[in-house]
């Protein structure tokens, strides 16, 4: 029988993450198309409760109530999923391209000796296998790739799929953690919360990003204002993160985050290739720049030449007026 399709989810604050729901939706869709069985796997202290919620997205859910204690959760997920995979022989494991997800995928690759399709921006079913769409070489090409084996790992970027509730929810099975040879111990000594880190720019439908053109940390006020008016979050270039004007969690690009919002407003951003690779697949791109020759004009939909400090507040006011009036 053709092997199962598994979605390996993550849990945050007792609930499946949005990415977990996207993976579950994806697995359910591919399973329906291929006549296979989809299954989601959740590992963690709240797995059973989170599983009830994740089942709404369609697949049956295996909940492994393994308590990581003071260990980083990725190692615990990888140990448990590897044990389950050896036992039940699924064909394909879908893992999210979050920090923890990529750690899980790398560990699983070594534990199972499986191939991996990385950084998928979309997945479809083709010739009895998942086929992943990836943006490569600075966005110059879009490749479609498949796994050259009847099993493997697919790492899926956030927002590649829209999470949907299924007509019929899946069933939850809570299972005891498998006895495993634990991966080498790493201990969490302290967890530090930072207000500036808690932005999920990868999930935001609207991003208003500021670059060196904002002139300093205070300059972000006009960027923040427009982001709030549009129901979005603030993004940034590396130049302003390096300058300490805003936290790294906001950085978009090659060594920051890759985002795909419906709307991306780039204020005072030149559009360097390392920034472009992180945002070029956004739905609509609007640039505001004093320099008519800034490279961002080459891939924006609307290029507004002017001073961001004169323009952004007026846009915020204009949007508010439109809503109010």
């Amino acid at each position: 029988m053709a092997g199962e399709i598994w979605a390996i989810g993550e849990i945050a604050d007792g609930q499946p993450t949005r990415l977990a729901r996207e993976l579950a939706t994806l697995a359910a869709g591919l399973a329906a198309e291929s006549g296979r069985t989809a299954r989601a796997v959740l590992v963690g202290p709240d797995a059973s409760t989170a599983a009830e919620s994740l089942a709404a997205n369609g697949p049956d859910v295996l909940a492994v109530d393994a308590d990581p204690g003071d260990r980083p959760v990725a190692a615990v997920i990888a140990e448990q999923v590897a044990a389950l995979a050896r036992d039940r022989q699924p064909s394909f494991l879908f893992v999210g391209a979050s920090n923890d997800g990529r750690d899980v995928a790398g560990m699983l690759q070594a534990l199972l000796d499986w191939g991996a399709l990385v950084n998928a921006a979309g997945v479809r079913w083709q010739d009895e296998a998942p086929q992943a769409e990836m943006s490569v070489f600075g966005g110059r090409l879009v490749t479609l790739s498949h796994l050259a084996a009847d099993h493997g790992i697919v790492i899926v970027r956030p927002s590649s799929v829209t999470a949907e509730e299924a007509a019929r929810p899946g069933k939850v099975a809570a299972i005891a953690p498998a006895a495993v040879d634990p991966l080498p111990a790493v201990r969490i000594v302290e967890r530090i919360a930072e207000a500036s880190a808690a932005v999920s720019i990868e999930e935001a439908p609207v991003i208003v990003a500021g670059g060196r053109g904002v002139g300093g940390p205070e300059g972000f006020a006009v960027v923040q204002e427009l982001a709030e008016v549009l129901g979005g979050v603030v993004g940034a270039t590396r130049a302003v993160v390096d300058a300490g004007w805003i936290g790294y969690a906001h950085q978009i690009g090659q060594t920051g985050k890759t985002v795909k919002p419906a709307l991306y407003v780039a204020a005072g951003i030149s559009g360097a290739i390392q920034h472009k690779v992180g945002m070029q697949t956004s739905g609509t791109i609007i640039a505001i720049n004093r320099d008519p020759d800034a490279p961002i004009g080459e891939f924006a939909d609307l290029m507004v030449i002017g001073d961001l400090f004169e323009i952004l507040p007026r846009v915020s006011a204009g949007v508010r007026a439109r809503r109010g009036g």
Partner: peptide, 14 residues
């Protein structure tokens, strides 16, 4: 210092 969703975790190993 490991970047986390909420900020960062201080993690340690031999």
């Amino acid at each position: 210092r490991r970047i986390s969703a909420a900020g960062y975790d201080v993690i340690e190993a031999p």
